[in-house]
């Protein structure tokens, strides 16, 4: 589970060196937009060296690769898979066929490296109208697909929409991608907030993403990581309410009661499920002791 995923430019030696000190749950080492076309070869080798030397043990390791149809994607996959990242992030994914094509290349690389099948997962980046409309089939296309990720900048441009801080133009895409991911039973991540100087704006945007059902959110700047983590961390109030809910339910079961209520409100199954989820997250984050 990741609350935050931090983008790190793949050709920046200095940023790679300290990528894991900003508190991000996931790191996205970027070979795509952050790397100029003439520097793809350099970035691959730099990322290779950084992963082998630094390892980034505390974080979920993700490598963003160039889209299908570019001259870089095969080399990206062939060179990155041996590094055993948790996830590769294919870009501009528009259909289930795209995932299958990527997955085949990944499988070949795994085989060549002697890695077990499905060592490397995928988190497709949906950033086109086609990708959003095909979100459910993409989510279900391959067992490698562990999560979906929304990219609002390219999407807005594809939609001929105006990108705004409030995000009305991506409301449908957000709803759609969350729906598809949850229907497929996988995680889903929100697009980064792009103004590095607007802390309040970030907080609002991250709170909205959590309220919409996203698992977490990407960050393009280390400055955003703490705010995103906070937004996706259950608050002490949420945790204590969840504990109360579970206590009331146990009590009800012990007494053989059919229906139970807490502070005058019926506690039904969705509320119990949500409480379990909150506590599970709290345990994962080390905020609560207990088994998962």
């Amino acid at each position: 589970m990741m609350r935050s995923m931090l983008f790190v430019p793949g050709n920046s030696a200095g940023m790679l060196l300290n990528a894991d000190v900003h508190g991000a749950d996931g790191l996205i080492l970027d070979l795509e937009d952050a790397v100029a076309p003439g520097e793809k070869d350099a970035a691959r080798r730099l990322v290779q060296g950084a992963v082998q030397t630094l390892g980034f043990p505390g974080a979920t390791l993700i490598i963003r690769i160039n889209p299908l149809g570019t001259p870089y994607v095969e080399e990206d996959i062939a060179r990155m898979v041996p590094l055993k990242p948790h996830l590769l992030m294919p870009t501009k994914v528009a259909s289930a066929e795209d995932v299958t094509a990527i997955s085949t290349l990944v499988a070949q690389a795994e085989q060549k490296t002697g890695l077990p099948q499905n060592t490397v997962g995928l988190i497709p980046l949906l950033e086109t109208a086609q990708g959003i409309e095909h979100a459910l089939e993409i989510a279900r296309s391959d067992p490698r697909v562990k999560a979906l990720f929304l990219g609002a900048e390219d999407l807005s441009s594809d939609l001929q929409a105006v990108r705004s801080k409030e995000g009305a133009e991506i409301a449908y895409a957000r709803g759609r991608i969350v729906m598809a991911a949850r229907a497929a039973g996988i995680d889903v991540y929100d697009t980064p907030f792009t103004d590095v100087n607007d802390d309040d704006g970030l907080q609002q945007d991250a709170a909205l993403a959590r309220a919409l059902g996203f698992t977490g959110k990407a960050a393009i700047s280390p400055r955003h990581v703490a705010g995103i983590n906070a937004a996706f961390t259950p608050s002490p109030g949420e945790i204590s309410y969840a504990r109360e809910v579970l206590a009331v339910i146990e009590e009800g079961e012990r007494l053989g009661k059919g229906a139970v209520s807490l502070r005058g409100k019926m506690i039904d199954k969705p509320i119990v499920d949500r409480a379990r989820k909150v506590l599970q997250t709290a345990v994962l984050l080390g905020l609560e002791r207990g088994a998962l």
Binding site: V21, H22, G23, P222, R223, A226
Partner: peptide, 11 residues
């Protein structure tokens, strides 16, 4: 400072 490493240290 805006240096993210310095900020990580100060946090």
């Amino acid at each position: 400072t805006r240096d993210p490493v310095a900020l990580a240290i100060s946090r």
